[in-house]
């Protein structure tokens, strides 16, 4: 297996976190994280680990299924965009 800089293989990652490979593959399939493929192995970038942990907690600790995670991710993006817009408008108003 070729080592990749700034990323970790999905198998290694799952062993560290004690989670199933299927969970990460499923996140990838739902577009919630992006895996890269090299030969037969899948890798996850370090910059995505924070997101992975977030989804892990939601899934395992809060029992939210994949469809729920997808909806949450979509709504959180919207919340973030709205928060940025509010900040920009507040700036424009000088408040």
């Amino acid at each position: 297996m070729t080592e990749q800089i700034n990323s970790i293989s999905v198998e290694q990652c799952c062993s560290y976190y004690s989670i199933e490979v299927a969970f990460i593959r499923s996140l990838n399939e739902h577009g919630l994280i992006e895996l890269t493929q090299q030969e037969e192995h899948y890798f996850i970038g370090f910059e995505q680990l924070a997101d992975l942990e977030k989804y892990m907690h939601m899934h395992y600790d809060l029992e939210i299924n994949m469809e729920g995670l997808e909806t949450i991710a979509h709504l959180l993006n919207k919340v973030q965009a709205l928060q940025t817009e509010v900040r920009t408008l507040r700036n424009a108003l000088g408040t």
């Binding site: 990652c13 560290y16 976190y17 004690s18 989670i19 680990l49 924070a50 600790d61």
Partner: peptide
């Protein structure tokens, strides 16, 4: 300890 095993990052 919670559910998750060894921490990584």
């Amino acid at each position: 300890s919670g559910r998750s095993g060894t921490r990584f990052k």
